[in-house]
């Protein structure tokens, strides 16, 4: 395959940045999208040019580190992570536009790499449970109905990649935050901090400058892990019931 790549290049956070076009030949349909970018970067390095910076880690679709807004969609045309996207999803001769996630809360560090530590701070605000020290508790000591366990596991699928924020017209982090709130609110282990968690995580989400939710559903449609917006409704319930009943005046 021969491709034209229209890639966002930006030296650092204070640089204005802009698109640069690259021609790339000899791309195999079986390559992953990131491998295709590796080939481009080898060519650029050989020419002494600065390679295109992009985030990646596991390349197995489980870590949530890869990003990229490809041809107008987060993680490209398939509902998967960019590392699991293959070049067979594109056509020979195609021009592919590659941009970083766009959100005030995700500033661009370099090229396609954004700072997603805002998510970490939301988790730090309340995405944890208290556990006793001492011996490891027995498995299945706490009875949890299967349907509840499955709902919690579905929410826990979130890998925190930020595609929801990238897809949302408001750059809202409601799907991410709600998945984390839901996962813990559903389980008995999460009850101790339940109310404070909902309040603190929502407050942190707002403090980071993520937008509000308009319920467009774009996040759910683009989430590589299929996290449902029923979690957002649950977070809203958790939050509203927490603010009216918690001891935090």
């Amino acid at each position: 395959m021969n491709l034209t790549l229209k890639i966002w290049r930006q030296k650092n956070n204070s640089d204005k940045g802009g698109f640069k076009d690259y021609k790339l030949g000899g791309v195999s349909k079986d390559m992953s999208f990131l491998e295709m970018l590796d080939v481009l970067n080898e060519e650029l390095s050989a020419k002494g040019e600065d390679p295109v910076h992009f985030d990646h880690d596991c390349r197995e679709g489980i870590c949530g580190m890869c990003s990229l807004y490809i041809n107008g969609k987060p993680h490209g045309p398939q509902q998967t992570t960019t590392c699991q996207l293959h070049m067979r999803s594109f056509n020979d001769g195609e021009t592919i536009t590659i941009e970083p996630w766009r959100a005030k809360a995700f500033p661009v560090l370099k090229d396609l790499v954004t700072d997603r530590s805002a998510f970490d701070r939301i988790i730090q605000a309340g995405g944890y449970v208290s556990v006793n020290t001492g011996g490891v508790p027995d498995a299945n000591e706490i009875p949890i109905p299967k349907t509840i366990a499955e709902m919690a596991m579905d929410a826990a699928q979130c890998i925190g990649c930020g595609a929801c924020v990238a897809a949302c017209k408001n750059a809202s982090a409601m799907l991410f935050t709600s998945a984390k709130v839901s996962q813990l609110a559903l389980l008995p282990q999460g009850q101790v901090e339940r109310k404070t968690r909902a309040e603190k995580m929502v407050a942190q989400m707002d403090a980071e400058g993520f937008g509000a939710c308009t319920n467009t559903g774009a996040c759910e449609a683009e989430c590589p892990k299929g996290i449902s917006i029923t979690n957002i409704a649950r977070m809203n319930r958790e939050y509203f019931s927490a603010v009216v009943s918690s001891q935090n005046v």
Binding site: W8, F19, Y69, N71, G72, K73, T97, E99, R102, A103, K104, A105, A167, K169, N170, A171, S172, G209, F210, G211, A212, T214, T216, G217, A218, A221, E222
Partner: peptide, 20 residues
Amino acid sequence: YNKSSRPIDYAMSKASTNSS
């Protein structure tokens, strides 16, 4: 507020594929 949450817009967006 929502507008301010995305100060720089995408050059290419296919929002019609994911929302009404």
